[in-house]
Computed example of a mutant assay.
Amino acid sequence: MTVANLLVERIAAHLPRLPRPRLAHWRGLLLPVLLLALLEVAVRAGWIAAHQLPAPSQVGETLYYLAASGELWRHIGVSLARVAAGFVLGAGLALLVGAWVGLSRRAEAYLEPSFQALRAIPSLAWVPLLLLWLGIDETPKVVLIALGAFFPVYLALIAGIRNVDRKLVEVGRLHHLSAFALTRRILLPAALPNLFTGLRGALSLSWMFLVAAELIAATRGLGYLLSDGRETSRPDLVIAAILLLAVLGKLSDSLLKYLEDRALHWRDSYTGEEG
């Protein structure tokens, strides 16, 4: 081995290792692309009736015309605003109430039975009551989405606080931390993994509740597109709205997952085996 080779090896040993290209993101596209291709072939070959399930190319044309006319962006903007408002309202209240119940046995005794009963009520059962109370404007739609976002965050935060190692709490008390400092420095940070799981579940439910919310006398939004496609017998419009809900839900979940990775970068947890 030459001196030059030895020098190169020593320099390379001190250089930071570049991360290997992650193929998982591309692998996730394989199944959807394959299903779309098979569906296109099945519809073109006449194996599936086009009036029942349109070809992906027809759905793509529908999305193109909606985007070119500007109507698509108006629907997406309205739905995004409703989901954002309902998610922030529901998750924010869940953080406050969940922290209170998680830290206080007395609060749990008073509130937990009622919340568990409310959690069992289906989303559509709230619609007539919200119409009677709040009218047909934006308020009942946002409130309905907030109801969907509240309970996953509430339950996850309580579970996260109650699963904190008792030894950590005892260490905080040995250092004479106040109740507020104990909560801020030990309990809430330790409950963050559970909290982010609840937030992601709440965001997913917010998109589901959006469809129910936009049945409340809506004239804009992706739920309205679904209803309009059903009433006008246009399956391409229905499929287009469903695809948009799926894509927007995935993008918003990816954003929250990115925030989770940044906030919990200190974790050294098991991530699964490659293969």
Rank of each mutant, 00 (worst) to 15 (best):
residue 221 G to F: 05
residue 125 A to N: 02
residue 119 R to Q: 09
residue 22 R to W: 00
residue 6 L to Q: 11
residue 158 I to T: 10
residue 33 V to R: 09
residue 25 H to E: 09
residue 112 E to C: 07
residue 16 P to Q: 03
residue 28 G to R: 08
residue 236 D to M: 07
residue 35 L to A: 13
residue 176 H to N: 09
residue 158 I to L: 13
residue 113 P to G: 06
residue 274 E to F: 07
residue 225 L to A: 10
residue 220 R to S: 02
residue 167 K to H: 09
residue 38 L to Q: 12
residue 255 L to I: 01
residue 98 G to M: 14
residue 206 S to R: 01
residue 80 L to N: 04
residue 5 N to L: 12
residue 21 P to Y: 09
residue 39 L to N: 02
residue 218 A to I: 03
residue 4 A to F: 14
residue 236 D to C: 09
residue 85 A to F: 10
residue 29 L to D: 01
residue 218 A to Q: 07
residue 23 L to K: 03
residue 150 F to V: 05
residue 101 V to T: 01
residue 27 R to D: 11
residue 71 E to C: 01
residue 8 V to D: 06
residue 64 Y to Q: 01
residue 188 L to C: 10
residue 185 R to M: 10
residue 29 L to A: 05
residue 194 N to H: 10
residue 12 A to R: 13
residue 161 I to K: 12
residue 240 A to S: 11
residue 236 D to L: 11
residue 39 L to I: 00
residue 272 G to V: 08
residue 1 M to T: 15
residue 25 H to T: 04
residue 245 L to P: 00
residue 122 P to K: 08
residue 162 R to W: 14
residue 66 L to S: 00
residue 204 S to T: 01
residue 228 D to L: 15
residue 135 G to F: 10
residue 115 F to D: 09
residue 56 P to N: 09
residue 85 A to V: 07
residue 48 I to Q: 06
residue 117 A to E: 02
residue 176 H to E: 08
residue 202 A to T: 15
residue 106 R to I: 08
residue 223 G to L: 06
residue 141 K to R: 14
residue 38 L to W: 13
residue 37 A to K: 00
residue 56 P to M: 12
residue 223 G to Y: 01
residue 164 V to T: 11
residue 84 A to V: 08
residue 117 A to N: 04
residue 1 M to R: 13
residue 163 N to M: 07
residue 61 E to T: 12
residue 140 P to Q: 05
residue 252 S to Q: 00
residue 238 V to H: 08
residue 137 D to H: 00
residue 23 L to H: 05
residue 148 G to A: 06
residue 206 S to C: 05
residue 19 P to I: 11
residue 156 A to V: 07
residue 176 H to D: 11
residue 246 A to P: 13
residue 34 L to Q: 06
residue 230 R to E: 06
residue 97 V to P: 00
residue 93 L to E: 05
residue 250 K to L: 03
residue 159 A to N: 09
residue 229 G to A: 12
residue 91 A to P: 00
residue 35 L to Q: 04
residue 189 P to N: 09
residue 213 A to V: 03
residue 3 V to R: 13
residue 205 L to Y: 03
residue 162 R to T: 02
residue 194 N to F: 05
residue 58 Q to L: 15
residue 253 D to W: 00
residue 11 I to N: 04
residue 157 L to R: 15
residue 182 L to A: 15
residue 243 L to D: 08
residue 240 A to F: 02
residue 149 A to W: 06
residue 251 L to K: 02
residue 255 L to S: 01
residue 85 A to E: 12
residue 234 R to D: 12
residue 120 A to I: 05
residue 106 R to K: 06
residue 63 L to E: 03
residue 190 A to P: 11
residue 247 V to F: 01
residue 101 V to Q: 08
residue 178 S to A: 04
residue 229 G to V: 15
residue 64 Y to W: 12
residue 275 G to L: 10
residue 147 L to C: 02
residue 48 I to N: 04
residue 75 H to Y: 03
residue 37 A to Q: 00
residue 80 L to H: 03
residue 167 K to V: 06
residue 31 L to D: 07
residue 200 R to G: 14
residue 132 L to E: 12
residue 171 V to Y: 14
residue 131 L to M: 07
residue 50 A to S: 11
residue 224 Y to Q: 11
residue 174 L to Y: 07
residue 88 V to A: 13
residue 83 V to W: 11
residue 116 Q to I: 14
residue 115 F to I: 08
residue 220 R to T: 01
residue 254 S to R: 14
residue 66 L to F: 06
residue 106 R to M: 11
residue 164 V to P: 12
residue 146 A to L: 13
residue 18 L to V: 07
residue 147 L to N: 03
residue 246 A to N: 08
residue 163 N to Y: 00
